[in-house]
């Protein structure tokens, strides 16, 4: 599997919302490639007949009763907020668009 270019690493940092400066890119990019080279060794190890494992101990249908349980007070909810206003989390202006 291919090596990551410096631009690709910058794109990954962008997807991950990490503001890497040039020095960090130079520092991390080669390390990422070393790691990717190592993990690439599993390509082709398991054939199409092998089912994927997403949970080591398989369970199914774990459901909750539709019954209200007490949660947090607004004070508790906002206790860690960097900024709060009108009992809401205050966040910087949101660029782009409603999702």
């Amino acid at each position: 599997m291919s090596q990551l270019s410096r631009d690709e690493v910058a794109h990954l940092a962008d997807l991950a919302r990490i503001d890497l400066d040039a020095a960090e890119l130079d520092h991390l990019a080669p390390q990422l490639n070393v790691i990717l080279e190592a993990v690439a060794s599993i390509s082709g190890v398991a054939g199409d007949d092998v089912p994927p494992t997403s949970h080591p101990i398989p369970l199914t249908n774990v459901f909750r009763e539709d019954v209200v349980v007490p949660g947090l007070t607004a004070e508790q909810a906002l206790s860690g907020a960097p900024e709060a206003e009108e009992q809401r989390f205050r966040v910087p202006r949101i660029l782009g668009d409603e999702q």
């Binding site: 919302r17 990490i18 503001d19 960090e24 991390l28 990422l32 790691i35 966040v91 910087p92 660029l95």
Partner: peptide, 24 residues
Amino acid sequence: SAETVMRATRDAGFGDEVKRRIMI
């Protein structure tokens, strides 16, 4: 903006190993 604050915070708040694994 919310987005630039997220980026700056995650850059300053995470160490190298965390950044490496998040990007991988």
